[in-house]
Write a protein that binds this DNA or RNA. Structure first.
Lengths: 126, 126
DNA sequence: GCCCTATACCGAGTATTATCGATTTGTATG
DNA sequence: CATACAAATCGATAATACTCGGTATAGGGC
C-alpha cells in the first residue's frame, strides 16, 4: 500500500503533519471497498434521471401498468420501457405480469425515503 | 392539458377503464412540478459517481483539505478538483479556506442518510 | 392458425459527463 | 516582488448515457 503513494503526496503530508505515516494510514482507512461503492452508485445512478424520478413518484400511490406510466410521462413507448428496465435492473421497482399488462411497483419504501430526503436537501440548498 | 394527450393513449384508457377522463386526470395529478424534479435529480446526479461517493465517505469523520482527499482517492489533482466542485455546486459539501488550503466538509447530515439508505438498499438487492 | 395490442429489445445518432494535462489564480514566505 | 505551492479552471478527448424509430416477443380474442 505504501508503495503506491506518490512522492508528491508524501511531501505534502510531510509538510502538514508531525507523523505523516500515521496520517497516511488513517486516510486510507477512509476508503470502503469497491463493490460496496459500486452498488451504492448504481442506486443513485438509477435515481438521477428526470423520467425515472417521475416514474417513482407516480408509483407512490400504488402500482401502475406500463401504459399508464406512459401517460404520466408523455413520452414514446420505447423511451419509457428503457427507463422502466433500468429501474428494475437497479432493484428499485418490482414487476407483476397480468395478461398483456406489466404492473410496476416500488420495491422498497426506502426508495421513497431517498426521494424525500433528496427533495428536502435540494429545497434547502436552493 | 387534455389536448396534449395523444389518441393512442385515449384509446388505451378507453379499453382499460370505465371512466377514462377521470383516470386521465388522476394520472396527471401524479406528476410533480418540473423545478422540484430537477432539483432532486441534481442531488442524485452528484451522488452517482464513484469518486464523489468516496469523497463523502471520507468526510464522515470530519473535514479534510483537498490535498488529503487527493490521497484518499489516489487520482490526479484536476480530476479531484472537478469532483469537489460538483459536490459543492450540488450543495452537498461546504468549504472553508485557511491559507493555501481549502477544507471540505459535509454540508448536511441528510447526505449521510442518503448514503446509508442507498447502501442498505443496494445490499438487500444484491 | 391470424390479428391486435402491450411491452420488451436493438441499434444508431445525439447529448451529457468524465478525465486529466496544461494553465491560471490565490496565498503565503523569504 | 520572486518563488513555491494549493487549488481552481480551461479545453480537448474519451467514455457513458439518453432518445426513439423500428422490430421482435408474448398474450388474448376470433
Amino acid at each position: 500500500m505504501a508503495d503506491s503513494v506518490p512522492k508528491s503526496t508524501r511531501q505534502t503530508l510531510d509538510r502538514l503533519y508531525d507523523d505523516p505515516e500515521d496520517r497516511l494510514k488513517s486516510l486510507f482507512g477512509l476508503t470502503p471497498d469497491d463493490t460496496e461503492i459500486e452498488a451504492t452508485r448504481t442506486v443513485f445512478k438509477a435515481l438521477s434521471n428526470e423520467y425515472r424520478i417521475r416514474i417513482l413518484e407516480a408509483l407512490r400511490d400504488g402500482e401502475l401498468c406500463a401504459c399508464e406510466i406512459q401517460v404520466v410521462l408523455d413520452a414514446p413507448q420505447s423511451t419509457v420501457a428503457s427507463h422502466l428496465r433500468e429501474l428494475k435492473d437497479a432493484g428499485l421497482v418490482n414487476t407483476r405480469r397480468q395478461g398483456k399488462w406489466t404492473y410496476y411497483r416500488i420495491g422498497d419504501t426506502a426508495v421513497l425515503q431517498l426521494l424525500d430526503i433528496a427533495d428536502a436537501l435540494a429545497e434547502e440548498t436552493a
